Amino acid sequence: MDNSFLSYYLLTSALLFSIGLAVVVTKRNVIVVLMGIELMLNAVNLNLVAFSKNDPDLQGQMFALFVIVVAVCEAVVALAIVLKAHEHFQSINLDEISNNSEK
C-alpha cells in the first residue's frame, strides 16, 4: 500500500472520529451518544487496519478484532444500563436523567 492510500485512510478515520466526537459532545439522547462512541471506535479500527496493511509486523488486525469485541461488550452493558434508566426515570434524555437524579 502506498503512502498516498494510507493518507486517505487516515483522513477518513479522522473524519469519522471527529463526527463521532461531535455527536457525543452535542447530543443529549443516550442511544445517539452510544452511536457516536461506536463511530469513534470504528475510526480507531480503520487506523489500526490501515497501519497493519502498511507494516505487517504491527498486527493491527488483531488489535482491531480486540477493539470490536470491547465495543460489543460496551454496547451490551450500556444498553442494559439504558433500559434500567428508562425503567426508573421514564426517559433516555441525559438532561432529564441528570435533573431527576438530583431530586
Rank of each mutant, 00 (worst) to 15 (best):
A50Q: 07
A43S: 15
I19M: 11
F66H: 01
I68W: 00
E38N: 09
A43M: 15
M62T: 05
V44C: 04
N47E: 03
L48V: 02
F63H: 14
L10Y: 06
T26F: 07
Y9E: 06
E38D: 06
L58D: 02
A22N: 09
I19R: 01
N3I: 14
Q59I: 12
V49P: 13
V24M: 03
N29S: 02
L34S: 06
R28D: 04
A22T: 03
T12Y: 13
K53N: 05
K27I: 05
V77N: 11
E74G: 13
A22E: 02
V25R: 14
C73L: 00
A50R: 08
A64F: 02
V33T: 12
L11K: 05
V49Y: 02
S18N: 06
K53Q: 13
D55N: 15
A75E: 07
T26H: 06
L46M: 15
L10R: 14
V44A: 00
A75T: 14
E38A: 11
A50P: 11
C73P: 08
Y8F: 14
V32A: 08
L39P: 01
M62G: 03
N42S: 04
A64W: 07
V76L: 11
L65H: 13
A64R: 09
V33A: 08
L46F: 05
M35I: 13
G60S: 03
Y8G: 10
C73R: 01
L41K: 10
G36D: 02
Q59T: 15
M62L: 02
T12H: 00
V77I: 15
V33I: 06
V25E: 06
A43R: 12
Q61K: 01
L34M: 07
E74L: 08
A43L: 10
N54H: 15
M35G: 05
L11I: 15
I68S: 04
V23P: 04
E38Y: 11
V49I: 13
K27V: 02
V23S: 07
K53P: 09
F5P: 05
V32S: 01
S4D: 14
P56F: 12
S13F: 09
M40L: 03
F63T: 08
D57W: 13
E74I: 11
